[in-house]
Structures are given as structure tokens and as C-alpha cells.
Design a protein around this nucleic acid. Structure first.
Lengths: 205, 205
DNA sequence: TAATTATGTTAGTTAGTACTAACTAACATA
DNA sequence: TATGTTAGTTAGTACTAACTAACATAATTA
């Protein structure tokens, strides 16, 4: 089995091939169910090479986690482009969020599969969720104080929006079940348009 | 370790204790990572009893699947109580859906963990999703034709609503992260109220 | 060219796990 | 009294997977 699909056309480093194969297999079957033999075969290296590079199985996962633990650029990416127009901003958020999650879907899947055996990983990733939630809470409060968001419980509105985005990510990307006969972007546009109508104060008031 | 929490106060049958322990452990760690020894210990029986009752590990999972494969009562439960008032019906759906998923969360978790190793289970449960989606599509179309739902892509509206419910289930029940400082029912009420406002045609038209 | 480095090969050891077999104990029932 | 049923105990087999050690070879570098 040959495995080498680095986008640059260069051959991937041995370490990268191993980590790439490991994350793929672990996200598919879980840490315990994946064997070093499988990882080596998928990376087209010998089992010994894996052991020489990483020592043991746990170190492979640790390397994966370290590699994918870059700072949450989600917030910074957003803050720059906010226009304080509800529809624009929520759509922007949804698109950026989906792209962010697609990039991290494998490490996220591992964290779900191993949420009980290795709770630290899951908690670490969950920190990001809390940060995003806080960011959205601040944004929604600001919009509310400017009369651009209906009165009511901001916590609920934020949760509504977050759970919609999260549900979309899980069914569409993580589990790969697409039941919608239209494109992803169209769907987001339609949904957020309806959402925004519900969250915008009536003009007549 | 003593394990016996049958609601009737009677002692649970040996088979039930074993299945109950197995589903709990498999939903927590995945099929492969659970050992017969663990299941036996958790059910407070000897390993041999497990083998005598079920023969092998796969049979335990098969028994679990068979036991939890009752007809989707979700649709029937709903049809009876529909009032064709959007807010009432969507809130009703959300509550019934959440309760239904809570009941089936363990088998659902197993289907996610083993989605690649045993794709049949996941596909079977997914059939239910498709059925629910079709039901909601019919309902939304009906409401739209009665002028009780805004014009636009019904597929999007259904997906918006389903993904909100699904996202809520996954974060609240499946992964157990509750970030909302209010009660579940209050949250559903608030969210659906906002959603319904967005999906209801304006009175002035 | 010689040394070094990266990788492969082969053959182990050790531990865990699914599963079997033989036997025993307690209790119920014909 | 004899037999069936249900569960436990103990020992063992077959296999798998993590991990190690020793040696071989190809590529890279001094």
C-alpha cells in the first residue's frame, strides 16, 4: 500500500506519513482498536520504523495532539470581519466555524471516541467551545443593547445558534450524512436568513 | 461490585444484568475495548455465566441491538398531538425528540463509535432519521400551503430545525456538556419561539 | 572511500483476551 | 432418591498486539 498525498508533490517525511496514518485510523476506529502494524502498513513503513520514531503507541497520539494544538484562530479570524449586521456576521461565523471544524475533524473525532479513556483531550478541545460561547455572548449582548437583537434570554439565543452549527457539523462532516438536496452554502444562507428574521426586532416597534 | 438497579425492586435477571452492563461499557469505550471480564465484573456474575448465556462477545452486541430495535414510535407519538400551530408543534416535537434520544442514547453512541467497524447498525438507526425528516418535510409543506410558514426552501427549514435538535442532543446528552445556565425546557421554549418568529410569515402581508 | 544515518527484516518476549473444558455447589423438581 | 438447572471455579489453549533486540542494507554525508 502506497500512501503519499502531500499537496506539494514532495514526498512526505516518514514522521508525517506515520502521524497522518495514525490520526486517520484512530479517528476511524479509536485508539485501542488501531494497531501499530496497521499504522505502519498504511504509512508504507516497517513496524520498527514506527517504534524508532515514536517509541510507543501513546507517544504517537501525544504527537498528534501536540501537532493539532494550535491556538484557536477562530476568534481572531472573526473579530476582523465583523460588520455588526446580524445576518452578515452570523453567516460569516457559520462559514468560518464549519471550515475550522472540518480542518480539525479528525482530532475532534478522536476526542469523542476517547472521551472516557482520555478525558484530558476532550476537555482541552472543549475549552475552545467555551471561549467561542463567551465571544458570541458578548456579541449578542452588544447587538441587543444596540436594538439589533430581540429582547429575551441571550444565553438561549447563543445556544440556539451554536447548537445549529454544531449539529450541522456533526451530521454533515463528522458522520458524513448529507440529507439536504442543496449545497452547503445555500443551506447556511437560507437557515441563517430565517434565524436572523426570528432574532431581529420588528421594524414597526 | 454489586449491580442491581431495576426500577421494580426485584432482582434483575442474569441476562438483563449482563446486557445492561455490556451496553453501558460499550457505549463508553467501544466494542473492541470492552472485555468479557469487565462486563462480567460489572454485572456481578462470573465470566463463564456470560459465555453460557451468550456464547461469544458478538452475540452480546447482537442481543443489545435486537433488544433496542423497537419500532420508531416517534412519528406515531407526534401525529396524535399535532395542532398545526407552528410554535406548539415544533416545541412538542423537540421535547418528544429529546426524550426519545435520551432513551436510545447508549445504542446511538455505540453506533457512532462502531460506524466504520459495523456500518449496518449506524445505517439502521439512520433510517429513522430519514423517516423523521420526511415527516417534517410533509408537515412543513402543509404549513406552507396554509400560509403558516414563510416561503422559501422547505428542505433548508427542516434541516435547520433538525440540526438544532440534533446538536442539542449531542452536546447536552451524548457528550454531557451543558453550557446553558437555564433549564432544558426553558431553553427549548426560548429557542423555538425565536425560530418560529423567523419561520412565520409577517402579519402585515 | 568511509562513516553515519535511516530504514528494513527477522525473531523473539510478554501480556492480555476470547473462548473452552472439566469439575463443583446449591437448589428445584419429578 | 434421582435428575435437571444454574452458576461458580480453575486451568488451559490459541491468538493477537505491544514492544525489544540483533543484524542487514541502502542512502546520505564527511
Amino acid at each position: 500500500m502506497i500512501y503519499n498525498d502531500c499537496e506539494t508533490g514532495d514526498y512526505m517525511e516518514t514522521d508525517e506519513k506515520i502521524l497522518d496514518s495514525a490520526i486517520l485510523l484512530m479517528a476511524s476506529k479509536g485508539y485501542k482498536a488501531v494497531t501499530i502494524k496497521e499504522i505502519a502498513a498504511h504509512a508504507s513503513v516497517s513496524e520498527m520504523t514506527v517504534y524508532r520514531q515514536f517509541g510507543n503507541k501513546q507517544n504517537i497520539l501525544d504527537a498528534i495532539i501536540t501537532k493539532f494544538q494550535y491556538a484557536s484562530s477562530l476568534k481572531e479570524q472573526l473579530e476582523k470581519e465583523l460588520t455588526y449586521d446580524l445576518e452578515h456576521d452570523l453567516l460569516l461565523y457559520s462559514i468560518i466555524y464549519q471550515n475550522y471544524m472540518i480542518k480539525n475533524k479528525q482530532i475532534y473525532m478522536i476526542s469523542v471516541l476517547e472521551r472516557n479513556t482520555m478525558p484530558d483531550l476532550h476537555l482541552t478541545l472543549h475549552k475552545n467551545v467555551e471561549e467561542i460561547q463567551q465571544f458570541l455572548l458578548d456579541y449578542f449582548r452588544k447587538m441587543q443593547s444596540q436594538g439589533k437583537l430581540i429582547k429575551g434570554n441571550v444565553d438561549s439565543f447563543v445556544a440556539l445558534f451554536m447548537r445549529f452549527n454544531y449539529g450541522h457539523f456533526v451530521s454533515e462532516t463528522l458522520l458524513g450524512f448529507s440529507n439536504i438536496p442543496i449545497s452547503n452554502e445555500e443551506f447556511l444562507k437560507d437557515s441563517i436568513s430565517a434565524l436572523v428574521t426570528g432574532l431581529t426586532p420588528k421594524a414597526s416597534n
